[in-house]
């Protein structure tokens, strides 16, 4: 059981990295990865919202949508739940935890339309449907891993981009193109993790 959870967690970070192999959450990945500390703040907020949304949407789907045959409302319900949660978290943080709000608050509104969050909540359900040993806890661990994977990718990439600032880049490639080419190289390095988790867990 614990072994399965560790495997799910590591796989979500390394081999199933949401940004670099599933292309979810590319906008913040390219947009807010210029500095390591913004990258950290953004990914911390994303991780938090991912776990929270999975915690809420998973039971909604299993206990409300499926019994009533309303699976087709999944997309619309999930996006509204996520949007509502983000608003709620923002208000609660602002009122009760001002220091945390000051460091994470500005990232929160950006997360509603982040496809990584919606993607996680849907993918864990897909996995749960295919694998009977996949439980609510596994889903939570999976979405936490996905958030940490996002964090790892963002921080590594912010480091790479820091190096670009002093590099001599051909004119046409300046700006977004060279950023994308660097992202491609970072993504190559993540390909190297293939099989690592399975190998470690036997």
């Amino acid at each position: 059981m614990v072994k399965q959870l560790v495997a799910v967690f590591l796989a979500a970070i390394l081999t199933e990295n949401y940004v670099l192999s599933k292309f979810l959450g590319i906008c913040p990945f390219l947009g807010v990865s210029k500095k390591v500390n913004t990258a950290l703040g953004m990914s911390a907020a994303v991780t938090f919202v991912m776990v929270l949304s999975t915690a809420v949407t998973y039971p909604i789907y299993e206990n409300i949508l499926v019994p009533f045959g309303l699976e087709y409302l999944q997309t619309i319900v999930f996006i509204l739940v996520i949007a509502g949660l983000v608003q709620l978290v923002e208000i609660i943080l602002k009122k009760y935890m001002p220091p945390l709000y000051n460091s994470l608050g500005i990232y929160l509104p950006l997360i509603t339309t982040n496809c990584a969050v919606l993607g996680v909540t849907m993918l864990v359900l897909e996995k749960a449907a295919a694998d009977p040993s996949y439980t609510y806890v596994t889903a939570l661990v999976n979405s936490f891993g996905a958030g940490i994977g996002f964090l790892v990718a963002m921080v590594v990439f912010a480091g790479v981009r820091g190096r670009l600032e002093t590099a001599d880049i051909p004119n046409s490639l300046k700006g977004l193109p060279i950023t994308l080419v660097s992202a491609s190289l970072v993504s190559v390095s993540f390909l190297g993790f293939a099989g690592l988790v399975e190998g470690m867990m036997g």
Binding site: E16, S21, L123, A130, D131, G195
Partner: peptide
């Protein structure tokens, strides 16, 4: 039956 592959579950 299913098993987990590289990108996800394989049925």
């Amino acid at each position: 039956s299913s098993a987990s592959g590289y990108g996800g579950t394989i049925e």
